[in-house]
Design a protein around this nucleic acid. Structure first.
Lengths: 243, 243
DNA sequence: CGCGACGTTGAACTCAGTCAAAGTTAGTGG
DNA sequence: CCACTAACTTTGACTGAGTTCAACGTCGCG
């Protein structure tokens, strides 16, 4: 049976802004179902025009663009709470693809209901715009990372960030977090070659900063990682709206 | 005297979606004035919380982030029609700065009016979200450029894109376009060193692809530029909402 | 004229990419 | 339970695109 919005396991996390009862009722109406997909499934296809929008409930995914050359640029990592399909919603075509890395569970919304959200729930529309602005902010950060940092700094930074996100979502137990991406995914996200990514991971292992093997991230020295990645340690993530 | 929204010189350009009369009247009310700034003025400051939102009417600017190390990453180039301050509007703090490269003329909106826009003008709120989605899309493109392309490809691509944008805004006369940015600005946008950017520009000049001197871009071979930058030539820019 | 900002050039160096091969791991079927 | 395979990871050797440093050139302006 599908999860009721009122019982949403995600919204209980402190990282997400609370909703009014009326808003929860609207979301429940807006939500048309739940989707369960296997690892490897493609949720959104570049250039396509999905009739659905999603919010990730469980599982991990990837957002990426495929270049003319066949190369891939990973735009970001999709974690629970992330909204998928805004571009398809407002523009009429996705500009990137979204793929499930693990099995995923997603809330399904009908794109056609988006307009009623704007008409009837200005507060929720505002939240949606907020989410878009947050997304823009994060992409800006990533841009700066690719533009100005070297290999080891990029790797350190992305893991520190993922660990922060994981912690805010309760995905971290002890100092471990399941992170079943491939090294190739990481390389494609950081704009590095697979080989160089591999060698950089080895360096961070040797420096006792992190250990990422068999899909499990073990955080050995979070502070050092932040230092290398030029991040504030424990910059507590700001709360954000959940859709 | 300030330009009336009904007479907006930008909206006449085919690149922007038309508005209904009611929408124009609302925008006129929403618009609280016009701002004229000199070259070099900082419009938005990273970390600050501007009470205003802007739409560029005339002039060129830069959106950038300053890193811990003092380096700068240019996020994108601000041209007429671009909306400035969405982040300050919905989140409460800008995550990047915006600076005027030339003198600029801007429509000024009050941040406090944003909420009434969502309440009274769902169509305009939708447009705002659309604008955010477009922004996200463009950042994704840039990310792929920095992540996967080499120096000459990046330079070629950014000029081809700027030329396209300029054309859609009527900033191109003949094959020339005023583009008074510094080489350092370009370098900071592309994630290249100043020196390498300079040498790459020289290559493109020698290859008879473009000539960018004294703030004027002369497009010598647009097709070749697109080819080098792996872009579709004349990919006509999609129409977009103007705010 | 002289100064400051910006652009250009060459030389030395280095980080990261490419190529190629070998090592691991998990899954499959005999 | 083992052999076989395919996907992923690791390693070394070589190469090259891009950085850094340092100097010089050019332009506009007070």
């Amino acid at each position: 049976m599908a999860t009721a919005c009122s019982q949403c396991p995600l919204r209980k996390r402190g990282i997400f802004d609370p909703l009014t009862d009326a808003e929860v009722r609207f979301m429940q109406k807006f939500k048309t179902g739940e989707l369960q997909v296997e690892a490897g499934a493609v949720l959104m296809m570049e250039g396509a025009n999905s009739p659905h929008l999603y919010t990730t409930l469980e599982g991990l995914g990837l957002r990426y663009k495929t270049l003319e050359t066949g190369e891939r640029q990973v735009i970001n990592f999709v974690l629970p709470g992330d909204f998928i399909g805004l571009q398809a919603g407002v523009m009429n075509e996705m500009q990137h693809s979204v793929e499930a890395t693990t099995a995923m569970k997603l809330c399904v919304f009908n794109r056609s209901g988006l307009w009623s959200l704007f008409k009837e729930q200005p507060g929720r529309a505002y939240d949606l715009t907020w989410a878009a602005a947050v997304e823009e902010h994060l992409l800006g950060e990533t841009l700066a990372t690719l533009g100005r940092m070297n290999g080891i700094e990029r790797v350190a930074r992305v893991f520190a960030r993922l660990f922060d996100r994981g912690r805010s979502l309760g995905l971290v137990s002890g100092r471990e977090m399941k992170l079943p991406y491939k090294q190739q995914d990481l390389a494609d996200a950081l704009g590095l070659s697979l080989v160089h990514t591999n060698k950089t991971l080895k360096k961070l292992r040797e420096r006792q900063a992190l250990d990422w093997q068999r899909g499990v991230l073990r955080m050995l020295d979070y502070d050092r990682l932040c230092e290398i990645g030029k991040l504030e340690a424990d910059g507590p993530l700001p709360t954000r709206p959940l859709l």
